[in-house]
């Protein structure tokens, strides 16, 4: 697609952006997190993994605004560096399922018949297992780590996107402009990816934003269980897990990473909801 069309589309959105406070608010939160992630080395006051036995378990103070943990690490610095990992989890954990699901859904919806049946039965099989159980078993087979987590998400998470896109494509392929495209001799690939997909994708884009929230929480949960990010790397899920034994005496170790998860999730869902309104997606 030419830059001109994208430019034109963006111009159209700008007008709507201005009228959408929720969209602006969500976008502001997300942009703030991205900036923090990029500027982590410059804005974090301490080294996030440097242990200092002299300042163990200190309550929030001017020197350590979020306090310190049981190894004397600065919680604020760890939360700031954690943005990098958690943002990565949310984005990569969504982008692979999104791409796979979109392709599968488009092809299944467009061709129908045996292709559709095969893919949709596969979807049924995957949906028959509880989501987290499936993800955990895949990670257990591949070995702990973020790489395994992304693979597991890609293998399991695409089903929702495939179903969303397929349903849309099924409706759109009988629309008059799709029939017109066939009657004008357009190739199947062109009809699928230039005419049907762009019109079918809005719902999935919106869903991906709320999916990012779930993936983020899953990533944190997996790390909490010791299957994701490995210590001593700063990641919010691990921080919550590590602070758990001290919850009654040093609440700040768990509270601040927990709040960060909530804030990021809130940003994604605000942005997603408002994006849905702006794109005219009916749910």
């Amino acid at each position: 697609m030419s830059a001109r069309t994208i430019g034109g589309k963006w111009m159209g959105w700008q007008g709507r952006l201005g009228r959408q406070p929720a969209l602006m608010f969500g976008a502001t939160i997300l942009i703030a997190f991205v900036l923090i992630a990029l500027l982590a080395p410059y804005v974090s006051p301490y080294d996030p993994i440097l242990q200092n036995a002299e300042v163990r378990l200190q309550a929030p103070s001017w020197a350590h605004p979020f306090g310190t943990d049981n190894f004397g690490r600065d919680v604020l610095s760890r939360v700031i560096w954690g943005v990098r990992i958690d943002l990565q989890i949310a984005i990569l954990g969504v982008i692979f399922p999104f791409i796979i699901g979109t392709l599968v859904g488009t092809v299944a919806g467009f061709f129908g018949g045996i292709v559709d049946t095969l893919f949709m039965r596969l979807v049924d099989i995957i949906l028959a297992f509880p989501f987290l159980v499936l993800v955990l078993s895949i990670i257990a087979i591949l070995g702990p780590g973020l790489g395994s987590f992304y693979i597991a998400m890609a293998l399991v998470g695409w089903v929702s996107y495939a179903r969303l896109i397929r349903a849309q494509v099924l409706v759109l392929k009988s629309s008059d402009y799709a029939v017109a495209a066939v009657s004008l001799g357009f190739s199947r690939t062109r009809i699928m990816f230039r005419h049907l997909l762009p019109n079918a994708i809005a719902g999935s884009v919106v869903f991906s934003m709320s999916d990012a929230v779930l993936v983020l929480l899953n990533g944190a949960a997996i790390s909490y269980l010791g299957l994701g990010v490995q210590p001593p790397i700063a990641e919010w899920g691990i921080m919550v897990a590590e602070g758990q034994p001290f919850i009654t005496t040093a609440w700040w170790i768990t509270l601040f990473p927990g709040l960060s998860i909530v804030m990021l999730a809130f940003g994604f869902s605000m942005f997603g909801d408002a994006l849905g309104d702006a794109l005219g997606v009916k749910e």
Binding site: D176, Y177, V179, A180, S183, H195
Partner: peptide, 17 residues
């Protein structure tokens, strides 16, 4: 047919991408 015929549809909005 694809090169020498064309169709015009009923619903003008639904007929255009």
């Amino acid at each position: 047919l694809r090169r020498e015929t064309a169709m015009v549809f009923q619903d003008p909005y639904n007929a255009l991408n």
